[in-house]
Computed example of a mutant assay.
Amino acid sequence: MAYKTVLTITGVSGGDRDIKLAAKLSEEIGAHLSVLVVALAAPPPIGDYAAPMSDTWMEERQADIDRLEQRTAAISDLLAPMEISADVTNTYPEIAWADEIIGRRARYADMTVVGPDLLSGETLKEKTIEGALFSSGRPLLLVPEGATATLRPKNVMVAWDSRIEASRAMREALALLVAAEDVRLVLVDPVEGESFQGEEPGADAATYLVRHGVKITVDRLPSLGRSVAEIVKRHAIDTGADLLVMGAYGHSRLRERIFGGVTKSMLEEVPLPILMAR
Score class of each variant (00 low, 15 high):
residue 191 V to M: 13
residue 164 I to F: 14
residue 165 E to P: 11
residue 165 E to D: 11
residue 173 A to M: 05
residue 174 L to I: 13
residue 185 L to Y: 01
residue 190 P to K: 06
residue 157 M to S: 09
residue 170 M to Y: 14
residue 158 V to Y: 06
residue 159 A to W: 00
residue 196 F to I: 00
residue 182 D to S: 14
residue 178 V to D: 07
residue 181 E to T: 01
residue 177 L to F: 09
residue 190 P to Q: 09
residue 189 D to V: 05
residue 180 A to S: 07
residue 174 L to V: 09
residue 163 R to F: 08
residue 164 I to R: 14
residue 161 D to S: 11
residue 183 V to T: 09
residue 170 M to N: 04
residue 176 L to P: 10
residue 162 S to N: 14
residue 159 A to K: 00
residue 172 E to W: 01
residue 190 P to Y: 06
residue 181 E to H: 03
residue 160 W to I: 02
residue 165 E to R: 13
residue 195 S to D: 06
residue 187 L to Y: 07
residue 176 L to Y: 11
residue 184 R to M: 03
residue 164 I to N: 12
residue 166 A to Q: 08
residue 172 E to V: 10
residue 168 R to Q: 12
residue 167 S to I: 10
residue 195 S to K: 11
residue 158 V to L: 10
residue 175 A to P: 10
residue 188 V to H: 04
residue 197 Q to P: 09
residue 185 L to I: 02
residue 198 G to Q: 10
residue 184 R to N: 01
residue 156 V to D: 03
residue 191 V to S: 09
residue 197 Q to M: 05
residue 172 E to K: 09
residue 185 L to E: 02
residue 193 G to N: 09
residue 175 A to V: 11
residue 184 R to K: 13
residue 171 R to K: 07
residue 158 V to M: 10
residue 158 V to Q: 13
residue 191 V to R: 12
residue 171 R to G: 01
residue 164 I to P: 13
residue 189 D to R: 06
residue 167 S to F: 13
residue 198 G to K: 04
residue 163 R to C: 10
residue 185 L to T: 03
residue 188 V to D: 09
residue 196 F to W: 13
residue 186 V to M: 03
residue 166 A to E: 12
residue 171 R to I: 00
